[in-house]
Design a protein around this nucleic acid. Sequence first.
DNA 1: AAGTGGTCTAGACCACACC
DNA 2: GTGTGGTCTAGACCACTTC
Lengths: 244, 244
Amino acid sequence: MPLYRQVQQLLENRIENGQLRPGDRLPAETELARELQVNRLTVRQAISELARAGQLLVRQGLGTFVAEPAAQFTVTLGPERTMAVMEQAVATLQEEGRTSEERLLSTEIAESDQAREHLGARRGRLRRVDTQLLVDQQAWAINTYWFGDARFRGIGKLLGAGDVFRICCDHYAVDLHYAWRSFAAAAASPRDAELLDIAVGSPVLLREGVNVNTEGKPVIYVSRRLRSDRMRFIVRYDTDTSRR
Amino acid sequence: MPLYRQVQQLLENRIENGQLRPGDRLPAETELARELQVNRLTVRQAISELARAGQLLVRQGLGTFVAEPAAQFTVTLGPERTMAVMEQAVATLQEEGRTSEERLLSTEIAESDQAREHLGARRGRLRRVDTQLLVDQQAWAINTYWFGDARFRGIGKLLGAGDVFRICCDHYAVDLHYAWRSFAAAAASPRDAELLDIAVGSPVLLREGVNVNTEGKPVIYVSRRLRSDRMRFIVRYDTDTSRR
DNA sequence: AAGTGGTCTAGACCACACC
DNA sequence: GTGTGGTCTAGACCACTTC
């Protein structure tokens, strides 16, 4: 077994048996290298794999820390076509005493073939809205919304005061339902990594979906990128399904 | 911008503009390093990030190759509680002219607190079955099934001749439905990486679920790890939902 | 200023696949 | 044997954070 993997296991063991606890700072890389009689790069390789897996948190200038245990949050999606998912999620979080906030990152007129296709919008300007979901001041997800600019004219001034779907529904009298949702996994890009506070290349859960109005016409296409160590989704078939 | 990221972008550009096509072999690392006037380690860092993202495929002793474009496969899950998902997937694949096979990796009596909890089985031996989903001879997913050994006595001799669920249903007269399915993302462990033919740390889509019989009693707990560059899931709300 | 991680180099040897 | 990627070392300098 390669040296760096031995170092990796050694660190994992120290975490597992409590020698290193969540929040603890590891010895400096040079320190570890000296202690273990290996090169600093070997230590770095071990650390970077553990950081990608979410077990360590590396902070330039500060040190390397044992990550907090994954406070996984489970969202239950019933078979209904309701829009309540994120609201349900937020409600559950607040019951647990957590604070949550959807922070506006940017909004602009932009182009995307993919968004046009999902929205069935061949012409007209598209608006892109980027937000960050913060739970207890920590990044949990980043979201990108696409919709026809004409449909939500003047939304730029309304954004920033609550979650995007609520603003759309409240101010524009739209009743939105899911048409579909998709789940995939991807490696964090440098931008993802920065906004989610994770290592580049870490796995992120990619969740896309299209929302339709009561006539079934696509209105919003949304793409979310979630920290995989903090969120997972459960699709549950509620008991009331048996009434079908 | 760091050098290795410049090299990374340079390679991405060559792939994008067609200078490097899927299946092509890249120049050797030492060659690239000489050509770009950088150290081999710098080239390696660029390559390893692209390999984790699924754009390159690295083969020791052979070379580094441009990965085939992601032949994404979409599974549509209706709101029904049927078991048809993998069968539907396999059917679609075969319509496309692909071959698919669920290959048995191992089966044994084993223990897992998690499995016991999901199955509600406090006592009795548990059987674990590991399989690999191959499409066109290539690994697409690895699966782990857990169930009470008594429920499917003698299944060891039946396995290896078709997919696990079909064997369970056909030979043991069980009618299975989904109770729930979960979606998450994770970093590929060394074992995942080997079985899925991807780089360690690559993102994998983790899909778990519990299947119940007609009385609603949990029978099988299954965990699948999917190559994220080859599969994504879509939860679609079929039109017939409107009949509810 | 001091200490941390981030990047880069030059060079060596090993493990694996193919001929 | 030859060429590929895989691992490891020693050493240097840079960027960031805190004091």
